[in-house]
Design a protein around this nucleic acid. Structure first.
Length: 291
DNA sequence: TAATCGTGGAG
DNA sequence: TCTCCAAGATT
């Protein structure tokens, strides 16, 4: 059947052509893997690499990060985006210290119980750091499945059934299954890309349902990302940038978003940041979270 | 379940 | 210039 043959082609293809990335080095470690996966959540590989190395140099273990303040984590996170991830990674480090003796857990359910760790990240750590056999499904592999298996241009929204589908594609041996998971992601990222797939160099084009269907380019029905300019997210981003730049010093709340056009939106952005625990009040001052 | 959450590079 | 979207998680 098709699923079996896909792995027969992709596993050797990956072994021959995969890019060298920091988290693919042997002995990179579960902590490094966990940090890299947090950073890679919605942030491109090229932007992650230098930030990851700086992070691991500063905090080489979960204990080291757990001993720092959330403010330090948010500051070190710099411009990676979605700063809640920095907060959550810090919380996860505290949980690893307190509940797992400072060792990144191997069990998927224990990984899932860590703050900020979901279906993708938990299995990525179990598979890529520990070598266990689980389906790892990210946006790239979902796109490859949509095209190669179902002949669709775009994947549907992420769903847990994706895990079952990927399970059906995995070879039996743990080591090969791990490579297959990585190969699907790699193919989606470098060949079967979202906007302009490079079918001319695709190793599985002769078994691709989408190519067989004539490579139809249908509309993407998934909801588009909201406009950023003038959004709450932009307002929040400006607040955190100001606080990161001032860190470790706080700033007067009046100094934040001084030239923002919409005072109600300014209040809303600040309120949501307080709510998320990304900022905290100290009289008239605003701090990044100190504990 | 669908909306929300940053930032910057590529096309 | 402007749109798209990137190794997702949470509520």
């Amino acid at each position: 059947m098709r699923s079996r043959r896909l792995a027969d082609v992709l596993v050797p293809w990956y072994r021959q052509t995969a890019r060298e990335l920091p988290w693919r080095r042997s002995g990179f470690g579960a902590w490094g893997t966990l940090v890299s996966e947090f950073m890679l959540q919605q942030t491109p590989v090229a932007r992650v690499i230098p930030m990851l190395e700086a992070w691991l140099e500063r905090w080489p273990t979960p204990d080291a990060l757990a001993g720092a303040s959330p403010a330090e984590a948010v500051t070190q996170w710099a411009n990676l985006g979605y700063p809640r991830r920095a907060l959550w990674l810090h919380r996860a480090a505290v949980e690893i210290r307190d509940r797992h003796d400072g060792v990144v857990p191997r069990d998927v359910d224990e990984l899932l119980s860590l703050t900020g760790v979901g279906d993708y990240t938990a299995r990525a750590v179990a598979v890529f750091a520990y070598g266990d056999r689980h389906p790892v499904v990210d946006t790239n592999s979902r796109r490859v499945i949509a095209r190669a298996i179902h002949g669709r241009t775009h994947p549907d929204a992420a769903h847990r059934r994706d895990l079952d589908e990927m399970s059906g594609l995995l070879p039996h041996a743990d080591i090969d299954a791990a490579v297959m998971n990585a190969a699907m992601m790699e193919l989606g990222q470098v060949v079967c890309t979202a906007r302009s797939p490079r079918c001319d160099v695709c190793p599985v084009r002769d078994m691709c349902a989408w190519v067989a269907a004539g490579s139809p380019w249908t509309a993407d029905t998934r909801r588009k990302q909201a406009r950023y300019e003038g959004s709450d997210r932009q307002a929040r981003g400006l607040v955190l940038k100001a606080l990161r730049d001032a860190a470790p010093d706080p700033l007067p709340e009046e100094a934040l978003l001084t030239s923002w056009h919409d005072p109600r939106q300014r209040d809303r952005a600040l309120a949501s940041l307080y709510d998320d625990g990304l900022i905290e009040p100290d009289g008239d001052l605003v701090h990044l979270p100190r504990r």
